[in-house]
Design a protein around this nucleic acid. Structure first.
Lengths: 339, 339
DNA sequence: CTGTTAGCGCTTTCAA
DNA sequence: TTGAAAGCGCTAACAG
């Protein structure tokens, strides 16, 4: 490995002078600068960021902990994070927890030991330990996509409650009364907030509590499949299903199809999150869209600001708007089903 | 920050003893070990990996450079990389080049400066510089998904040529003769290899050179759209389109639909790469599937082996098989179109 | 079994 | 404008 000392020797100057040339700091005569630069070129020297970081106490690296990069929502979010990070000269280490609090804690430890300058965290259900750890070590961090109850830290998320409310209002306007919600984990706020929005809309509509029901499973295709199955077993069966995320929607769709029901004739299906572009018929799922890319960007910007100047004193709770996109998976209630 | 010296002082031992406890190396009496461990707990000490890495000259970090994490194929691949890396105690920094050789080179520099132990690279078209750089600095690396001509290094990829051949043979068996290939960049081997497989199948079938044509654009939805448009302008128009990747297939599908053609009645459409699971009709695209997750895993394993024991002397060229999945987007040629 | 010394590659501090 | 010394937090090598 070629070090600053090698360059210094070749250029006939001290290490310090080389350091000054590399960092463009301090005064240096044109002549020595040129000599140093030539030595750098000839030797193909590149600085060792590790050593620099050890002194500097900044690594220009962020950690991104999410549940599963494979979920298109998080993929897009991750891309937003990397784009902004990269603009600021930061690198991003990514980590998949699969919703496991243990994995989350493990990654938080690893990242902290690696001295990342900040962490972007999509919190799992058992997050208090991780957050406490980061706070104790004063590692700046921003929560993404999900709140954590009773914890006052920076969060960038969508208005899940409102988005769900909008979506369910749309179903109500179509005449639906028996609407089932397919929740993810009952411990994740993006799941519970969406169910809460659903409840608000149902209650506002003056519906009997018996007519609505939330089936909590997990934010997976399998979870959606099972949630939809139990929803469809209810008698009288719901006329509409509200999937609280994209994976749930896919699983629910499969269950509905297996049950031999036609969407939207027999049943309406709506969902949080859009699907990635694909080949096939026109996208037909009525959804509430989240600005995943923008969430990644904003969260990274908030983190950058904290790293720069500490940012505002109070934790920021940035809530991005969702957008209702009505397509053909939701339709009016067919009267025969109402009997 | 709490350092090893703080722990040492509190436990009344030397830094070295603490180091030994942390690393479980050397002999230590039960008693001192207990004292040190207590001090560590009380202080909430965690080791600084940066300092350790500076000595060890190993960072337990890999770089993953791909074109766009947002492409489902690369998303899945990235997950495979992270899973294996994580099993081995490595972290992964991910980087998006968007097919830009400049970005690729920039990232290669950054990662090298950060002293990553190895790099996984999906090479862009202008890769020789990046590869030369990594070789000069003797940073172990493995190419992913794409070959680079005239460069002998570890590669993990699919048999693009054979996969394309299989796919086109399927079309030929259905009676198609005028088949157009929609290539990505003419500078990327996964694109050119697929077109080569297409050519081989066409030539073997004894078709006139005039009947087949490859339209090179880029591995994007827009590229697929434009490629399909120019393919469809050819007179007589092709009876089948072969999209060389998933994004191209999406764009091609849109162009076909805009042209008012029905798949597979008016035109067959087949593609490399599958689409992510979605809501909608049954997956209907006839495709050649690549084991993206497995590619990520294997490449990381190869890299791990290089880091462990140097691995085999000769560079490895690991070619994973593809799988033809026939669905409903390909059908027999309708005679009226053959007139 | 435990401690001391030296040094990884770099930059801060102070002096020249 | 340049350099020498010290030290970031850790561990290898040697000594005791």
């Amino acid at each position: 490995m070629i070090t600053i000392a090698d360059v210094a020797k070749r250029a006939g100057v001290s290490k310090m002078t080389v350091s000054r040339v590399i960092n463009g700091s301090g005064y240096i005569s044109q002549e020595t600068r040129a000599r140093v630069e030539q030595a750098i070129d000839e030797l193909g020297y590149i600085p060792n960021t590790l050593a620099r970081s050890l002194r500097y106490k900044r690594t220009k690296t962020l950690g991104l902990i999410l549940t599963d990069i494979t979920n298109p929502f998080f993929t897009t979010l991750a891309r937003g994070v990397e784009d902004i990070a990269s603009e600021h000269g930061f690198s991003v280490i990514f980590c998949n927890t699969d919703e496991s609090p243990e994995e989350e804690e493990r990654y938080v430890h690893v990242l902290t030991q690696k001295q990342v300058d900040g962490v972007l965290l999509v919190p799992t259900a058992g997050t208090p330990e991780s957050i406490a750890f980061l706070e104790n070590r004063s590692v700046p961090f921003v929560l993404l996509d999900r709140r954590v109850p009773d914890v006052y830290v920076d969060v960038v998320r969508c208005d899940s409650e409102q988005g769900a409310y909008d979506l369910v209002r749309h179903l109500l306007a179509l005449g639906h009364k028996r609407i089932a919600a397919l929740g993810g984990s009952a411990l994740i706020t993006s799941s519970t907030d969406r169910v809460a929005g659903y409840r608000r809309a149902m209650i506002e509509a003056g519906l009997e509590r018996e007519t609505f029901r939330a089936h909590f499973t997990s934010f997976t295709i399998e979870g959606g499949y099972q949630g939809a199955q139990s929803a469809l077993r209810v008698d009288p069966r719901p006329t509409a299903l509200f999937a609280t995320n994209n994976f749930i929607a896919i699983g629910a769709f499969r269950a509905v199809r297996e049950a031999g029901l036609i969407i939207p004739d027999d049943l309406s299906l709506v969902s949080f999150d859009d699907m990635p572009p694909a080949v096939g018929i026109e996208p037909f799922l009525t959804i509430v869209e989240q600005p995943a890319y923008e969430m990644g960007r904003r969260a990274t910007q908030v983190l950058m600001q904290r790293l720069d100047d500490g940012g505002p004193n109070r934790p920021q709770d940035i809530v991005l708007p969702t957008r209702l996109i009505i397509r053909s998976s939701s339709g009016p209630v067919v009267q025969s089903h109402e009997l």
